[in-house]
């Protein structure tokens, strides 16, 4: 259930930026969540409405952009999506290593 404190933080950050721009209401929060970030987009959506009640984000729409994790091949340098139980590059069968792609978890922007 650790989507709860993290959703609180999302609302805090959005409300801070709204206040800085003299807005009392956040209309949209654009969030980027990688599939390897450990957070499930639908769980954040589920808790969002409940936690946002009474805050500047009460009526905000949550836009979640998911990022599919990509590995980088250590032989040919190509980025690829891995198959289960393998890290092999589909182009050259070389070994793929982790990248930051898929580990994102940040607020890109808000709309007021």
């Amino acid at each position: 259930m650790h989507e709860y404190p993290i959703t609180q933080r999302i609302i805090e950050i959005a409300a801070e930026h709204a206040a800085k721009n003299n807005a009392s209401e956040v209309k949209v929060i654009n969030l980027v969540v990688g599939d390897y970030s450990g957070y499930v987009a639908s769980s954040i959506e589920l808790y969002f409405e409940i936690i946002a009640e009474g805050s500047a984000c009460e009526k905000a729409k949550l836009n979640i952009e998911r990022v599919v994790p990509k590995l980088k091949c250590s032989s040919c340098g190509e980025l690829f999506v891995r198959k289960p139980f393998s890290f092999d590059c589909p182009y050259c069968k070389g070994e793929g290593g982790p990248t930051e792609i898929g580990q994102e978890f940040y607020i890109k922007s808000i709309e007021i």
Partner: peptide, 12 residues
């Protein structure tokens, strides 16, 4: 709506 750039990690 006016879009405000945030680019802030939720882990900050």
């Amino acid at each position: 709506n006016k879009e405000i750039e945030v680019m802030q990690s939720v882990y900050d």
